[in-house]
Simulated assay, not measured.
Amino acid sequence: MKLSHVRLLVPNIHECFLFYRDQIGLEVRYGDETTPFAEFATGDVSFALEPSMADDQATLRSASQPFSANDQVALIFRVDDVDAVYAALVSRGVQFVQPPRDTPEWGHRVAYLRDPGGNVIELNQGI
């Protein structure tokens, strides 16, 4: 068995599409800001956005909290240099909930942010 796709169900697909394309800088494989489905090129595992079935916007996680007991998924992006990617994303207006830091217990350097749907994103580099 091999994981081939991650499809993130989001309440605001238009906003999330623009975030992943324009601010994170992912290459669009399918769709655009007007379609109800979009897929991005991310290496071996496909990453896609699709509208969620939830209609209660109040359930979105806070964009300012690093972690919440309500979090159910975290997207981990392996990068060569967390600090360089952090600086590039900050220059594009991305707000982080936790700046780069070493986690020697896991052997990584990490930084955390949230997408417009409230999902946790970790930038991850081995140390």
Rank of each mutant, 00 (worst) to 15 (best):
Y30A: 08
E27G: 04
A74T: 15
D83Q: 06
V97W: 00
N12T: 12
D81M: 03
S68C: 12
D32Y: 08
M53E: 04
A41M: 02
V28R: 07
P51E: 02
P11R: 05
Q98D: 03
M53Y: 05
Y86G: 01
V94M: 02
F67E: 02
V94K: 01
S91F: 05
V94W: 00
I76W: 08
V82D: 00
L3M: 14
H5I: 13
R61W: 02
P36W: 13
C16H: 08
L75E: 00
G43H: 13
F19W: 12
G93Q: 08
A63M: 13
R92M: 04
A87P: 03
L8F: 10
V28E: 02
P11W: 01
T34W: 08
V45W: 04
I13W: 01
Q23A: 10
V97D: 00
D22Y: 07
V45I: 15
F19R: 10
V79G: 05
I13D: 00
S68E: 08
V97H: 01
V45A: 06
S64Q: 12
I76K: 12
S4G: 12
V94R: 00
E27H: 06
L60F: 08
G25W: 01
D44L: 10
A88S: 07
F77N: 02
T42L: 07
L49C: 11
P66L: 10
Q57S: 14
V97F: 00
E27M: 05
I24G: 01
P36Q: 15
Y86L: 03
L3V: 15
N70C: 07
N12Q: 11
I24N: 02
V28H: 04
A63F: 09
A87Q: 09
T59Y: 00
S52Q: 14
V90N: 00
N70M: 10
Q72S: 14
L9P: 04
L60P: 03
S68F: 06
R7T: 15
T59D: 00
F67N: 04
R78Y: 08
S64Y: 09
G31D: 04
H5C: 12
A74Y: 08
F40W: 06
I76A: 10
E50I: 11
R92K: 15
Y20L: 05
Q57D: 08
V79R: 05
Q72L: 11
S62C: 15
D71K: 14
A48C: 12
D22A: 09
T34C: 07
F37S: 13
F67V: 10
S52W: 12
C16V: 15
Y30L: 13
V28Q: 05
A48N: 07
A87T: 09
L26H: 02
P36K: 15
Y86C: 01
P99F: 03
I24R: 03
V6C: 06
V73N: 05
S4Q: 15
A38Q: 10
D81H: 07
E15G: 07
T42E: 03
S52D: 13
R29F: 11
D55G: 15
S64T: 15
D55W: 10
D22C: 07
L89S: 04
F96R: 08
